[in-house]
Design a protein around this nucleic acid. Structure first.
Lengths: 147, 147
DNA sequence: ATAATTAAGGATAAATTTGTCCTGAATTAT
DNA sequence: ATAATTCAGGACAAATTTATCCTTAATTAT
């Protein structure tokens, strides 16, 4: 569905939302270990989420790392997708037509539209906080560690 | 959602279903023009759909080209996806976890599952014939030509 | 048989995505 | 101030996807 970069972005953000606060910042090492992702690549992705402090924040230096504010924790999952440039995916034609609309639809359009709307609804109502809370409660996971 | 290769595969198959019969085979030139795709790349993709005559058939030589039988026209869209190796996509985790299941779900799993099931249902009930018929009727399209 | 037409299939190239590494900048502790 | 830690950002490398081209094989018409 999404690129690997976006998958890492989602998992990393959930982890940061779950553990990272202004006085408990999380380093890239801990993050990539927790979500099972390549550290350097993940670092690059987090830079994008950090732009204009849109989703996450970071500070350099000892005890530095990544964290989130209460405000951005309340952002919908869609905000991460936007930051990762996955907006196109959410209104793209299944058959890959550049312009596929009500007035000039592809043969899958009408049925696919209904499903895509649910996807968008899901990404717009689920907040980062929700996902972090669920994960904290221990009934869902953001990695495949057996322990 | 799908790779470009799969998008071309879907559009090409619909076109072939619409126009290609054993005594009216369609050349790669006409196909790629009709669906607005790169000819050589499309040819390569059609080779895959042709394997074991799974989806389409072809013959070389003058008046050669691609066509379909009544039988494969009745195949669900999913058959094309399978042939293109997109099966993984249809049961992949949104967050990219290698193993995401009822017993060890990611935080999006329960909600996402419901939507994915609808997608699968759609791909399994819509047949190639359906899409070709709709296109033939002229109310839906498989390219972006203005004419 | 020969020539013409069309797909098959391999080699290769271009573009994009994924991933690594290194230097520099920011921050903190001593 | 200096050293140590951690992120920022650029350059580069590997892998994958997308795309092209060329030679061969199959088929048909003459």
């Amino acid at each position: 569905m999404f690129s690997k970069a976006t998958e890492y972005a989602l998992r990393a953000t959930i982890f940061i939302a779950q553990k990272g606060t202004e006085d408990n910042k999380i380093g890239i090492g801990e993050i990539s270990k927790a979500i099972d992702s390549p550290p350097s690549f993940t670092a690059k992705i987090l830079q994008a989420l950090r732009k204009n402090n849109k989703i996450i924040r970071s500070v350099s230096g000892p005890n530095g790392g990544f964290y989130m504010t209460e405000k951005t924790r309340k952002l919908p999952v869609r905000a991460i997708l936007e930051a990762m440039g996955e907006n196109e995916m959410l209104d793209k034609c299944v058959l890959g037509l550049a312009k596929c609309s009500e007035t000039k639809p592809c043969p899958m359009h009408s049925k696919y539209k209904i499903i895509k709307e649910q996807l968008i609804e899901l990404f717009e109502t689920k907040t980062i906080q929700h996902l972090a809370d669920d994960t904290k409660n221990g009934d869902v996971f953001i990695n495949n560690k057996s322990k």
